[in-house]
């Protein structure tokens, strides 16, 4: 318990550091939100209008005051409102975060479904045609950037074969079928790299466990091969796979930025990019804080999962 409390404490401190760095960096780089808002399409705003907007948005206050008021709001779980349209940042995150998480969850599920069976099979038939083919594909998938895969998917599935929409989003409540169809391509694009990593990890890990003494002993005891694979091999082999998964889920959050843009998926990334472009300080701060917190939660969840899979961690 103390261990968990300490970890949470350290993480909270880290979030504060991240928030402060982002806050300072945002204010140090050139770019005036008021001017940008009024300069759309290259038009020239009247400086008096810009000054008035700055005052209205509270941007004319000293930096320290703005910093203090941000953290004051944060203490009350209030992330402020967007400088662009006065929309509450919390509402925007609450609506978009689930979509990003859904994308990550779908991609993870796809990866696991593809990587674990193939990885295990490749390990059981080490050196065979399937193994060599899959290992080669994995190297290729790892090398190709996610936006290339995304663009190729749009080109082939949407524009050439016309079997998928080019991108977009339909809420589940409106049409579950459409919702899932639109989820496929972005999830595939994100899953691509992770699948390759997990495939390799599963293969290596299963190979490693297969050569262990306890597997030999189990076989000698005459336990059914299926039971050995499920209870002894996979169970032990999956712990390192989970570690890798946990490490990569953080990276998936980054991968969604490009994928959400390419497929017009209205998750958290697009508003983050737009907010940085528009120097929409409260929105950037809110989203960065959310993502940092998510990182922390994923790591915490992974630690707990290890404990479930490997009893030694529970007692140790």
């Amino acid at each position: 318990m103390i261990w968990i409390a300490r970890r949470v404490g350290v993480s909270l401190a880290l979030i504060w550091v991240v928030a402060s760095i982002v806050f300072l960096a945002l204010h140090v780089v050139p770019g005036d939100p008021a001017e940008l808002l009024l300069s759309a399409g290259g038009s020239a705003p009247d400086p008096a209008t810009v000054a008035d907007l700055r005052e209205k948005l509270g941007l004319d206050r000293p930096l320290l005051t703005q910093y203090a008021s941000f953290f004051q709001g944060l203490a009350h779980a209030d992330l402020g409102t967007s400088l662009v349209d006065d929309y509450p940042v919390t509402d925007e995150i609450a609506r978009r975060l689930p979509r990003t998480l859904e994308l990550i969850a779908a991609a993870t599920l796809l990866s696991l479904l593809m990587a674990i069976p193939t990885g295990t099979y490749a390990a059981l038939h080490r050196g065979g045609l399937f193994d060599r083919l899959m290992s080669g594909s994995a190297a290729l998938l790892l090398a190709v950037p996610v936006f290339v895969v995304g663009t190729l998917l749009v080109l082939v599935l949407a524009q050439t074969l016309h079997i998928m929409p080019a991108g977009g989003y339909v809420p589940w409540a409106q049409s579950p079928a459409q919702h899932l169809v639109l989820l496929v391509m972005p999830a595939l694009a994100i899953a691509q790299g992770l699948t390759a990593v997990l495939f390799r990890m599963t293969r290596a890990s299963v190979l490693d466990v297969l050569s262990k003494d306890f597997v030999r002993t189990a076989r000698a005891k005459g336990i059914a091969p299926a039971r050995i694979l499920a209870r002894h091999v996979l169970r032990n082999a999956l712990t390192p796979v989970l570690t890798v998964l946990g490490l990569h889920m953080g990276a998936l959050l980054g991968g969604t930025v490009l994928v959400e843009y390419v497929f017009n998926w209205p998750g958290l990334s697009t508003p983050l990019l737009n907010a940085v472009d528009a120097r929409d300080y409260p929105m950037v701060m809110g989203i960065v804080l959310t993502i940092s917190t998510l990182f922390l939660l994923i790591n915490l969840a992974m630690d707990l999962l290890y404990a479930v899979l490997d009893p030694r961690i529970r007692t140790g």
Partner: peptide, 30 residues
């Protein structure tokens, strides 16, 4: 592990098929 391997092999298309099910009968776009 011959039987398991077969089962595993049979399982791959089954899993893939289940995953693809929702999309098969849906018109690609509105």
């Amino acid at each position: 592990m011959t039987p398991t391997r077969r089962r595993l092999l049979a399982g791959i298309p089954a899993i893939a098929g289940t995953a693809a099910l929702p999309f098969l009968r849906v018109p690609a776009r509105a």
